[in-house]
Amino acid sequence: MKTTLDELLALTCVVDSGSITAAAEQLGQTPSGVSRALSRLEEKLDVTLLRRTTRRLELTEEGEAFLAQARRILASVEEAEEQMALRRQRPAGRLRVNAASPFMLHVIVRLVAGFRARYPAIELELHSSEQIIDLIEQRTDLAIRIGPLRDSSLHARPLGSSRIRVLASPAYLAAHGTPDSVTALEHHDLLGFTQPDSLNLWPLRHALGDSLSIVPTLKSSSGETLRQLALADAGLVCLSDFMTAGDRASGALVEVLAAQTLEVRQPINAVYYRNTALASRIACFVDYLSECLAQEPWLN
């Protein structure tokens, strides 16, 4: 499209105000600027829109026809801007959120009812994935990432962090004994992740360093599966507080080797692509999540 909105606005303003000078005052421009805009418009359309005399400006027949279209175009743009303003005040539309299953189940799911009550026009679509996904390929607006970020193409908003601990069920410890040293773990069933290997580094201080790379007795790709295995008395596990705080509070899982455990926290970030404008529906979800997480005792 060759014609600009500024040129359409200049034409309608001149016609409505009756002169170039009056239109210039209304638009906050110089008369020469408005005159040039009209000349450019006529040149682009290759038609005369206004007959200029020393006393008045008069629309040609072509000008009458074009003015009607110009008014409709400007009215449509104004309506679109008003709609966007309304969406900022009352965010609406589909919002696709991705998170690993544990965070989705233990954190986001509990907040959905409150979020929908506050923003009823937003249509939430929740997806779980144990692997890091491509947001564009998966048509995802926002993802919650646990752990260090590696993708520099992402915007990130920190939401806090969650400590990791070594845990076991009382029944497992009763049956196998409670380890009193890091070396004693050699005689226990250890529950770990299939990948990445960094998730099998437990924050335990020992003679050779400040972390212990375990060889799992039983592996899973899902932290929630490992939690359920620990609750089912299958062994010791190292998991984040955001998914085990309730279990520790109820006594279903207890911390093991607390004296040897370093305080290691996993960062929690809300991420979206850098070339994505932060739509109001994304911003309000992140704001709501941040507001609710601030009240969680496990968050730093």
Rank of each mutant, 00 (worst) to 15 (best):
L257C: 09
E224Q: 13
L212E: 01
R157Q: 12
L218T: 01
P196I: 07
G235N: 07
S211N: 15
L236A: 07
D241I: 02
T261M: 00
Q228R: 02
Q260I: 01
Q228D: 11
S222R: 06
D151G: 06
L239V: 13
A249F: 07
V254A: 11
H155F: 12
P148E: 15
R163N: 07
P196M: 13
L229Q: 12
E186K: 00
S240Y: 07
G177T: 05
P158N: 08
L208K: 06
G246W: 08
W202R: 04
I136W: 08
R157A: 10
S153N: 15
T140M: 08
G192H: 00
R139T: 06
A259H: 13
D233C: 13
H206F: 09
L226D: 03
L253K: 10
G177A: 06
L185H: 04
S198F: 08
G160M: 08
E137W: 05
L159W: 04
G209T: 06
D247T: 10
K219C: 10
I133N: 11
I133R: 13
D210Q: 15
Q260L: 09
A143T: 03
I133Y: 07
S153A: 14
K219W: 00
R205L: 05
S128P: 02
H155S: 14
L253A: 10
L149H: 11
D233P: 13
V166I: 11
G209V: 12
G147F: 12
S211R: 15
D151C: 00
A207Q: 09
E255P: 11
H155M: 14
R145Q: 15
D210F: 12
G147I: 08
T178H: 01
R165P: 03
V215N: 00
T244E: 05
S128N: 05
A258V: 14
C238M: 08
G160D: 08
P216V: 00
A234M: 12
A258I: 10
A156I: 09
G147D: 15
A174D: 06
P216G: 03
I136E: 12
E130V: 06
D241G: 10
S220M: 02
H206C: 11
P148W: 09
D189V: 04
H206M: 11
D134T: 05
L173G: 00
L218K: 02
L257E: 06
D197A: 14
L190F: 02
I136M: 09
V166N: 00
L135D: 10
L226N: 02
R163S: 03
L159S: 04
L191V: 04
L253V: 10
I164E: 03
E137G: 11
S222T: 00
T244K: 12
T244F: 09
Q131S: 10
L185Y: 05
F193S: 08
G246C: 12
G246H: 12
A207Y: 01
F193Y: 15
P170Y: 01
V254K: 09
D141T: 09
L212F: 08
A232V: 07
L262S: 15
S153H: 14
L185S: 03
G251F: 09
L199N: 02
L236R: 05
D197T: 11
N200L: 01
E137C: 03
H155Q: 15
L190Q: 03
S211A: 15
L231F: 05
G209W: 01
S221K: 11
S162G: 12
S152A: 15
R150P: 02
T140N: 08
G209N: 03
E186D: 02
L159I: 10
C238Y: 05
G160H: 01
E255W: 01
T178W: 01
D151K: 11
